[in-house]
Design a protein around this nucleic acid. Structure first.
Lengths: 344, 344
DNA sequence: ACCGCCGTTGACAGCGTTGTCAATTACTGA
DNA sequence: TCAGTAATTGACAACGCTGTCAACGGCGGT
């Protein structure tokens, strides 16, 4: 495998000059630049990330840390992250972090210390539920590494946060149900320690309030973002004397559970019941009937988080002032699980 | 961040001794070992993977390369891989490789050369369709790196291959349909350049042959492992004058498409039609009706591939003689999409 | 008592790159 | 023309670890 010295010899310059050319540093004559680049191509030179990392204290790697439970959501974000990494010559590493809630802070610190020491990433991507864990907030201060948080997040500072306006999206989706004539609209909550649950519920309430519909606590069911809890929530809702005509599940997996419950009870969707989800995960269009939901630009979110991290690491952006953590665009996807409220 | 020299000073030994202790090398007195370990713990020492990698020419990293299209299948394998990596103190890096078919071999080599040079992995995990691409077979010879291929694979050599017996599984699943009384059993093929398609189809034929059922070419539809082609295949099959009473889709996503087609045509599943898939991907249990399918131990496959790679890199296994590339266990998961053949 | 061996231990070099700084060359203005 | 400054280039060290090899000391055999 060709090293820098081989390129240098072939081009008749010192290795330092080769280094400068390949890193696009100033202070090299154009004529030499070409000569070096040609030589590098001829010997098939590829820089050793390892040596670079050791000397320059930059690893050219981004580390994505996710909770041990893998989902299509995280998968999509990761996909976006690896795309951007490859474009920019970075590596993407992935780690799993088990449940943090019952982990003493000391262990938490130790976990991250090990992770940081071992892979020395130039940036850290945190996805839900890690991204809105307040304790990590303090723990990561200890390490001098840019952190990007993906997903709804109410941390007040200027870190990199990539998200959509979930509250507004939830409101819009609920308003759509209301415009279809629904008034008894149920809501299935997600995990209580995730911000998404609260944002989406807030949007749901906003819409009800706006339409002057009173919140019926009986129509609000707990859940944990997984299919089985969606199923349970559906069973509970449909056992009610006064059934809802529409169900807003806080994510698609739970919406699938609600649909399953409806099917089992021979409730026709969308004629007798409308169901909506959130995320537009890959199962949304594969369900029967295909699910009306909110599309999050997960790929773009992965891209963005990565891009901003790399920029921060490269110091192309002196601070993050010009990255105002704005919302990315979402989109309501209308499919076949929603229809006019049944009259009765 | 503590370095080895800090541990050495604290323990009153040379850094070489620290290195020996922490790498479990021989020739250190037990008393010193304890002293070093204590010192390491006290200063919170974590070895620098970077420095280690540079000097020892081992990166303590496994690289998982997948096709640009990310699926739940790959996601699960990756999950298994990262689990084992973390257990063994390795990092997992991921890469995407775009479509290789129309890539000249020279480019292919260049792609891998860059990948290898940049991340210098101790092992490479290839997932379908990369894992059964014959050209990679030759290309990877150039690099002195252990390669694990996940998925059905008929390469004749002694490399690491982690798979289930897909043909047998497909036969068993088809036999189950036959035992339910079905004789008009359709098959939806996957991508033709993937071994899985051929293995699964072969198993389907085995079962038909075994039962003395003639293969009806009209019941064999093309597909590409994605939902839309499953939908198309369903539409084509259900437009037939003599409809099948059962459909075996070569994977779950296509089975979802077949189900959607059936629902749209108001064909009752499982009363009028049985549908089965393959993989037991996460959507299988969320479909309506929940899908009967073959569970591949994808997590275990990711674990195994990684374990074998690490062992190979560590030379704990001198060769691969004692890793006989045996099949892992699969399991037929009976759900609600299958039932007795309708009488007519 | 001496030799030679083995189990321990450490000094030192070097992995392939980039940072520092000095040396050299080119260019400016008087 | 020449000093003074700026641009260019390279020599060398260093990042933190492991591989090599030499030094040391204890021990058994003669």
């Amino acid at each position: 495998m060709a090293r820098m010295i081989d390129v240098a010899n072939r081009a008749g310059v010192s290795i330092k000059t080769v280094s400068r050319v390949l890193n696009n540093e100033p202070h090299v004559k154009e004529s030499l630049r070409d000569k070096v680049r040609t030589a590098a191509a001829e010997v098939g030179y590829v820089p050793s990330t390892t040596a670079r990392a050791l000397r320059s204290r930059r690893s050219y790697a981004i580390h994505l840390v996710s909770h041990s439970h893998r989902s299509a959501y995280v998968n999509a974000i990761q996909f976006g992250a690896v795309q951007t990494c490859q474009q920019r010559g970075y590596q993407l590493m992935v780690s799993l972090m088990e449940d943090l809630r019952d982990m003493p802070e000391a262990d938490l610190i130790a976990r991250f210390e090990r992770l940081m020491a071992a892979s020395k990433p130039d940036g850290l991507i945190l996805v839900p539920p890690l991204s809105n864990d307040e304790r990590l907030y303090g723990v990561l201060e200890r390490f001098d590494v840019p952190v990007a948080r993906v997903g709804p997040n109410n941390l007040p500072d200027a870190r990199i946060i990539v998200k959509i306006n979930e509250r507004e999206a939830a409101r819009e989706l609920t308003e759509h149900l209301i415009s279809l004539g629904h008034t008894r609209i149920a809501f299935v909550r997600g995990k209580e320690d995730q911000n998404a649950t609260h944002e989406r519920f807030a949007g749901y309430r906003d819409a009800l309030d706006g339409a002057g519909i009173a919140l019926d606590e009986a129509l609000v069911q707990p859940g944990d973002f997984n299919f089985p809890t969606g199923l349970e929530a559906g069973d509970a809702l449909f056992a009610l004397a006064n059934r809802p005509t529409a169900v807003f599940a806080a994510n698609d997996d739970m919406a699938a559970g609600v649909l399953m419950s409806a099917h089992r009870l021979r409730i026709d969707v969308p004629d007798d019941l409308s169901v909506v989800g959130f995320d537009d995960s890959e199962i949304a269009e594969k369900m029967w009937p295909a699910l009306t939901t909110v599309r999050q630009p997960l790929l773009t979110m992965g891209n963005e988080a990565t891009r901003q991290l790399i920029d921060a690491a490269t110091n192309q952006l002196p601070g993050m002032q010009d990255v105002p953590n704005e919302y990315l665009d979402y989109e309501i996807i209308h499919r076949d699980s929603t229809g006019p409220a049944p009259r009765n």
